[in-house]
Design a protein around this nucleic acid. Structure first.
Length: 968
DNA sequence: GCGAGTTCAATAGT
DNA sequence: CACTATTGAACTCG
């Protein structure tokens, strides 16, 4: 991301310059003069904030908050009205509303006891700032998207000296090497995957038959009274449906679970999957197939054997040995999504960034089911996915002949081509030919007319490819939100007479995106992880799941693919998936689909074992990975975001009495070990820590911030360095900023043509009603104390920190900052406070210049016309620097990253001096809890000098995939 | 056997 | 809270 947009321009003192790069338009503002001092931090280039979804009715911010009571830490959720209006934020607890300013309240014993605060009114359901202005793709950050680029002031000061934070060796690029060592690199992960592609050999005819009969038979079985339940007999109670219906439940047919028994004695085969997490810890998942038909069993290492209960009649539907011969390459036992030739597969740990317990840096797909123990190459290839072009072509040519003699499936619209690579099995649609390398044909290997073709992965796990696909996902989501925002704005500008039905802008935006061909991972259905999507990614709409290929049905909760004659579940969206649904073992109970559970118009009926339910049932037998997307609810019960939770295995299923008195299917899914930890769980755990357990300081602000800022150190015994915490800038005596003129609005600054502040912002208020910044500008004017407006959403950053931040000791980068709650893109994080210095003064502080933030020559008058800024002020006078060494706030602990998730924004509200704007940090991405907050310090390589004028250099240890390796 | 029409799924917004 | 438009795959019908 540290692309030197205009290295040469610094010397040219160029004027306004437009740089067009594809979709990107960079407006480069003039460079006025060189800096005299070695001010350290500069505004990141391309602070470009783009899109934002405006939620006019969204007026709630959710803050996960830990309250402190002496040495106790109590977790709470506080829903805070955004700071956009000028009223004090309030919370309600047990019906009592209390001002958030009243810090004492949150420290009362009552508050300590309470589990949660709830806002008295929750007109909408914004979470953590409500909207997003970059993407909804959670954690999607870093470089690459043009949309992120916007107007930015640029200049390249010549640093005379520097004393930036010192980092230990073996970080930065080294760090990333280390990471690669920790887990097998991409190539090896691919090569070692060695998933037995023979298993993909499918007899179309047989498939057809099996498919057809499967659902039918299963349905019949259910109707015949076979209940596959692990619930104690009697739990399922017949309702008033009459005797016939009641017969459907024969409690004596219920098979009791056996969760503690040893594996079956007479196992036909045993397959062990090794899931490797961080620290090379491997977890074994063993599936034992019982030859006696007494039920297979599965065991996660460290847990007891869990018997897979399959009713005998169900078992009869399973592939019989005699039928096996019909499968040309069918190995005994059928496909196991996790299996490799050696019967061992490894889930690569996703943990790489040591400081972030579940993130492995950006841009790389880190969740690889590979063979971590057998590193021989080409297993997969020699089995089926041969890369030999001629063979592939030949096989392709043979295909029609083979199929001609057989009865092709009517229902089979797809040529179920498939590949297995790492943890993925991809079922390609035949029409999606571009997915295959047609130039070389090397990906095509037909399965002897059995209908399915196997392709090797279109992407390998080389980090570059991972970045590419990751950026594709990011771009798609950026575009989606861009369209969405535009549609919203267009609608808003329309006269409100046009109320022609519900306006589903997210769907419209998705449609546009599809027409543009910007969907990712289309044309294929993936079993396992989806390229470019990482565990923890957050989405706002269901359509986004479709856009990135994570979950295709817009409505359906279960996505599935036909494979080997069976439909297998690929992903489920758990809408009930609040945190409590998952216990500590990562077990999710999912209710099947159908039965008119939600449609009140139709009569409720028993759920049938077909479609998604059948797919999940099949998956419970095949033990293939199923992606889980968790929908999280906000206060009013509406779903506000979807989080990709990782891969699960369906352990068992049973029938249960549903809410409408009809039978529903329940599926128990267990999270596959070795994946990134679930953020909320970590947060929960983290909040429980007490002094001595990693918690060093309960509140580094000593009560000066509304929300306490903890200091955590689980690395060593170091406590945070001492400094004086200040929540606002300290101006020198000579500096008496003039109060601004202020607007005269009395209507909440609704009329952006009359509101002076809005006019100064180019005729619009740069925030949405949720308090999220819409786009970065060189300078933003918030309404301030001089304004007459009382309620106005043009006040965001001036209200201070709303999120629960904490500083924590990193392994390699000193102290860092993270949030305990999910942050959506555009949310205000904090100001960078400190002492305001003139250059000449800053130059004297050579010992502490690691905390300097260069305000540079940002000052300028911006006249916004035609969306283009023009700088009219002269640049005489000195420039300024913020020194946070002695006086500062949490902002001084925020580290640099080459793939930052924050951006800096100049803001004025309490004075008019645009030479010394406030430096406000906003989220540039959706940021999951506990992910370190970073921004780009924006150093320029070889532009920092020591006191003798020598070029200084410092390695960067941000550890991101896109790390340039050097800080300066 | 094929295309047209219908049904099924669950929000997202009014 | 009730209601509805919505999409794409599966399914049914002619």
């Amino acid at each position: 991301m540290v692309t030197s947009l205009s290295n040469g321009h610094s010397e040219k003192r160029c004027g306004k310059q437009l740089m067009v790069n594809g979709d990107c338009t960079f407006l480069v503002l003039p460079i006025h003069r060189r800096r005299k001092v070695s001010a350290i931090r500069d505004f990141p280039e391309g602070c470009g904030l783009s899109d934002s979804k405006i939620h006019p009715e969204t007026r709630v911010q959710t803050i996960d908050c830990s309250l402190m009571k002496e040495d106790q830490v109590v977790s709470s959720h506080i829903y805070v009205p955004p700071s956009a209006n000028d009223e004090p934020a309030t919370v309600q607890w047990e019906g009592k509303e209390a001002a958030m300013e009243d810090r004492e309240l949150s420290r009362t014993p009552e508050a300590v006891k309470c589990d949660s605060f709830r806002m008295s009114k929750s007109p909408s359901t914004a979470f953590a700032g409500g909207s997003k202005f970059l993407s909804s793709g959670g954690n999607l950050s870093g470089s690459g998207s043009c949309l992120e680029k916007a107007v930015t002031t640029r200049y390249f000061p010549q640093r005379k000296f520097s004393a930036v934070r010192d980092f230990p060796p073996l970080c930065g690029k080294d760090a990333s090497h280390l990471r690669n060592d920790e887990s097998p690199n991409g190539n090896s992960s691919l090569e070692n995957t060695s998933i037995d592609l023979k298993k993909l050999a499918v007899d179309d005819k047989k498939l057809e038959k099996t498919t057809a009969t499967d659902a039918m038979e299963v349905e019949k079985n259910v109707q015949d009274g076979c209940v596959y339940s692990e619930r104690p007999a009697g739990i399922v109670q017949p309702d008033s449906r009459g005797d016939d219906d009641a017969k459907k439940i024969k409690t004596h047919d219920v098979f009791e679970p056996s969760t503690t028994q040893l594996p079956p004695e007479n196992v036909r085969e045993r397959r062990t999957t090794i899931c490797e997490g961080s620290s090379h810890h491997q977890v074994e998942i063993t599936k034992a197939v019982d030859i006696e038909g007494n039920g297979d069993a599965v065991q996660f290492e460290g847990t007891s054997w869990q018997k897979i209960i399959v009713h005998p009649e169900f078992r009869s539907l399973e592939t019989k040995p005699s039928e096996m011969s019909n499968f040309q390459h069918e190995p005994e036992g059928g496909f196991d999504g996790l299996q490799v030739e050696s019967d061992r597969a490894v889930v690569l740990g996703l943990m790489a960034e040591s400081e972030c317990p579940w993130r492995h840096g950006r841009g790389s797909s880190k969740f690889d089911l590979i063979d971590g123990t057998n590193h021989s190459k080409g297993k997969k290839v020699d089995l089926f996915a041969q890369s030999d072009k001629s063979k592939a072509d030949k096989k392709r040519e043979e295909t029609p002949n083979h199929t001609a003699g057989k009865k092709p499936s009517q229902k089979k619209k797809r040529n179920a081509a498939a590949y297995e690579g790492s943890d993925q099995l991809v079922i390609w649609e035949k029409k999606d030919s571009q997915c295959c390398n047609e130039d070389t044909g090397e990906f095509w290997v037909d399965k002897k007319s059995r209908g399915s073709s196997v392709v090797t992965p279109p992407i390998n796990h080389d980090s570059n490819d991972s970045i590419v696909i990751r950026n594709k996902v990011r771009e798609a989501l950026h575009l989606f939100h861009s369209h969405y925002k535009r549609l919203l704005q267009e609608d808003k500008s329309k006269i409100k007479e046009q109320t022609d039905g519900p306006r589903v802008f997210h769907l419209q935006a998705a449609k546009i995106l599809k027409d543009e061909g910007k969907y990712v991972n289309t044309g294929k259905q993936i079993l396992g992880s989806v390229p470019g999507v990482e565990v923890g990614d957050e989405f706002q709409f269901r359509v986004e799941l479709m856009i990135v290929g994570l979950h295709r049905p817009i409505m359906g909760g279960i996505d599935y693919v036909e494979h080997k004659g069976k439909i297998l579940a690929t992903s489920v969206v758990s809408s009930e998936g609040c945190a409590d649904e998952l216990d500590d073992l990562g077990v999710l109970t999912y209710t099947g689909q159908g039965g008119n559970l939600t449609n009140t118009d139709k009569e409720p009926e028993d759920q049938k074992l077909k479609r998604g339910n059948l797919a999940l049932k099949n998956s419970s037998e095949e033990k293939n990975p199923v992606r889980v997307i968790r929908g999280s609810e906000s206060t009013d019960g509406k779903l506000r975001k979807y989080v990709y939770d990782g891969q699960y295995v369906v352990e068992k299923y049973w029938q249960d009495m549903g809410p409408r008195g009809k039978l529903v299917f329940r599926f128990q899914l267990r999270r596959i070990p070795g994946q990134p930890k679930i953020a909320w769980k970590e947060v929960k755990k983290s909040k429980k820590l007490k002094i001595g357990e990693g918690l060093c300081v309960i509140d580094i602000s000593h009560g000066k911030e509304r929300v306490p800022i903890r200091a955590m150190n689980t690395i060593d015994d170091e406590i945070p360095p001492s400094f004086t915490y200040v929540t606002s800038m300290i101006y020198p005596d000579w500096c008496n900023p003039i109060p601004p003129e202020g607007c005269d609005c009395i209507d909440g600054c609704a009329d952006s043509e009359k509101c002076l502040c809005a006019v100064r912002n180019g005729g619009e208020i740069p925030f949405n009603h949720s308090g999220a910044i819409l786009e970065a500008k060189p300078l933003i004017y918030e309404c301030g104390p001089s304004c007459k407006c009382t309620k106005c959403y043009n006040r965001v950053s001036q209200h201070g920190i709303k999120l629960q931040l904490e500083i924590f000791k990193t392994e390699k980068r000193g102290w860092g900052v993270r949030s305990l709650s999910s942050i959506s893109s555009g949310t205000f994080i904090c100001e960078y406070t400190g002492e305001l210095l003139e250059d000449k003064d800053a130059e004297q502080r050579t010992d502490t210049d690691e905390y300097l933030f260069d305000l540079g020559n940002n000052y300028s008058n911006h006249t916004f016309s035609d969306g283009v800024s023009t700088v009219v002020s002269d640049m005489e006078g000195s420039s300024f620097t913020i020194d946070a060494a002695k006086y500062g706030n949490v902002g001084r602990f925020i580290n640099h990253s080459c793939s930052p998730n924050l951006v800096a924004q100049n803001i004025l509200y309490d004075h008019d001096d645009d030479r010394i704007p406030h430096v406000m940090l906003f989220a540039g991405d959706n940021i999951p809890p506990l992910q370190e907050l970073t921004y780009d310090y924006n150093y320029k390589i070889d532009q920092v000098f020591d006191s003798d004028g020598n070029i200084k250099r410092k390695d960067c240890y941000c550890g991101s995939v896109e790390c340039t390796g050097r800080l300066y």
